[in-house]
């Protein structure tokens, strides 16, 4: 990792923590008494829920567009290049879907978040087994997988509560920020065989 990449990762980690803090602050606020149209829906946790949706959508949309552009300029000429297009379409679609979910009950988006958490946790578990087979330090990935699936399970049992959704997202953001900081200060072992 170059110094610039390290700095970028650190800035990103700080932004993640700030965003998580904002979610947690807004999480307890009730804006339903405000004299604005639709304010009656802005009960506890709903504003932070909208905030999460917006950021989700922007990040996914950017990623989706990047993959689609990459497909049309480069990847459509490569073996397996369609995977890049599917990635792009999936991300863009998920972004637009997330946008449409703004006016849909919380349980939809909670299902979506829990699904992502389950997939992510499952990947962690697979990685742990892979590392175990190859004789590396597998325990960390295993714990990571179990915690992520545990979070997903907790979210799944509280499908209708934006407060829980905000909490889970804030935890995930803080966790990711910590991992980014650790990655910055840990020497990377990767294989490059040119």
């Amino acid at each position: 990792m170059t110094q610039w990449q390290k700095l970028k990762n650190l800035i990103f980690a700080v932004l993640e923590i700030l965003f998580a803090a904002l979610i947690l602050v807004l999480r307890d606020k009730d804006f339903s008494h405000l004299n604005i149209p639709g304010a009656e829906r802005l009960t506890q946790g709903v504003v932070s829920y909208y905030l999460i949706m917006t950021v989700f959508m922007i990040v996914m949309l950017i990623n989706g567009i990047r993959f689609i552009v990459f497909y049309f300029t480069m990847a459509r000429f490569m073996t397996g290049g369609r995977g890049m297009l599917y990635r792009g379409i999936l991300y863009t679609d998920l972004a637009l879907y997330t946008l449409s979910l703004n006016s849909v009950p919380v349980n939809y988006i909670m299902t979506y978040v829990t699904a992502i958490l389950i997939i992510s946790g499952a990947i962690n578990l697979f990685q742990a087994f892979d590392i175990l087979k190859l004789g590396g330090f597998w325990q960390f990935k295993l714990v990571q997988g179990i915690v992520t699936i545990g979070l997903a399970f907790y979210g799944f049992t509280h499908l209708h509560q934006p407060m829980v959704l905000s909490g889970i997202c804030a935890i995930a953001l803080i966790y990711d920020a910590i991992m980014q900081v650790i990655a910055v200060f840990t020497p990377t072992r990767i294989i490059t065989i040119p």
């Binding site: 890049m84 990635r87 004789g135 590396g136 072992r189 990767i190 294989i191 490059t192 065989i193």
Partner: peptide, 28 residues
């Protein structure tokens, strides 16, 4: 496999390669 510490063995077909990275310019 992707473990940098793993030993390659032609007899068992254990070979090591870099990890898939969707980034066009990744050094992988």
């Amino acid at each position: 496999g992707h473990n940098p510490a793993a030993k390659e063995d032609p007899e068992t077909g254990a070979y090591t390669g870099s990890i898939f990275q969707a980034n066009e310019n990744s050094i992988m």
